Simulated assay, not measured.
Amino acid sequence: MQTIPVRIGTRGSPLALAQAHEVRDRLSAAWGEAAPAFEIVVIKTSGDRILDRPLSEVGGKGLFTKEIEEALIAGDIDLAVHSSKDMPTLLPDGLVLEHFLPREDVRDVLISTRHASLASLPAGAVVGTASLRRQAMVKRLRPDLDVVTYRGNVQSRLRKLDAGEVDATLLALAGLNRLGLSHVATEILPEETFPPAVGQGAIGIETRAGDARIDSLVSAIHDEATAVCLRAERAMLAALDGSCRTPIAGHAKVAQGLLTLYGLILTPDGRIHHDGTVSGRPEDAAALGSGLGERLRLAGGPAFFTQHPAEG
């Protein structure tokens, strides 16, 4: 009987903990009496500590994973649980992101205490979001709104909204669902007009390459349909050299044996955009994603982002 628990690394926000607990609970259910003991190990990341500046100014989305990955490499934890949309396309040597839970709803929501929808916000209303993608898409749809950087975990953003710091904010429906807070959503934004971030709604499990014991353990809860979609989306992102300074949206779906990937790039002010769709066999997911990313990169041209620097 194993006495040393399997250590699950995670950030300490309520949403991150909910995701880690979901992984633990699914593993316990899948393995039943054969399940090992589990320990949730909370690791504070640079992204959790730096709250006064946009991520694009201080290192990008890797700030939410760096310390967790260091603990994984050092052997202080056995696996790491992440929001897949927070994961850089390049991982540290020796680590892999190959296991995913079934994907949640990918859509974004608008939350406002005074207005019913994005369309009904009055000119000059202040919308707060930390995401350059959301900022760019709000500006694309409503250039008359004032979009500001707005960081913190879900609960702190809701508290600041209630305090009147902004007129509205945007969050992922998946996170609200996992926290039991879907009722706070004022408007669910259609995916067709407000496409999600790459990886949105998918919980990813990062492990050490070649760790057969942990791979065998987490394979029991792995959802291959989600993994196929993430391969396509992340390959597209890699081809675009996507980072927190690059407003990019992307979403893959598999239906009737066909994978379809949609991708969108925008300037941070939302004024210029290029998008595209590609379809093919699920087993070609990575190649399809790379091809679409290259197509979008060429459509934008080499100066697409450098001429329109991100403003956070």
Rank of each mutant, 00 (worst) to 15 (best):
F194C: 13
V218Y: 06
S279I: 05
L181C: 07
E192I: 11
A299Y: 01
L189R: 08
H308Q: 11
I214D: 07
P190H: 12
A209M: 06
T306S: 15
I188E: 14
A303L: 13
H308D: 07
A255L: 12
L230F: 03
A185F: 08
T226C: 10
A286C: 09
E283I: 06
G300K: 02
V228D: 05
D269V: 02
L230A: 05
P195H: 11
T246W: 05
G300W: 02
L217T: 03
D284G: 10
S216A: 15
F194K: 10
G242D: 05
V218Q: 10
L298S: 11
A249E: 12
E224V: 14
G270F: 02
K253E: 15
R208M: 08
A286L: 09
Y262E: 15
L237A: 15
L259G: 10
D211W: 00
A185I: 11
P309Q: 11
E233G: 12
L264C: 09
F304V: 04
K253W: 12
G199Y: 03
P309V: 07
E294Y: 03
R271T: 13
A220K: 14
I272P: 00
S216M: 09
T277E: 15
P190W: 11
R213I: 05
L217P: 00
G199K: 08
A285I: 02
A202L: 13
G270K: 11
M236R: 04
L288T: 00
R208Y: 07
I203H: 00
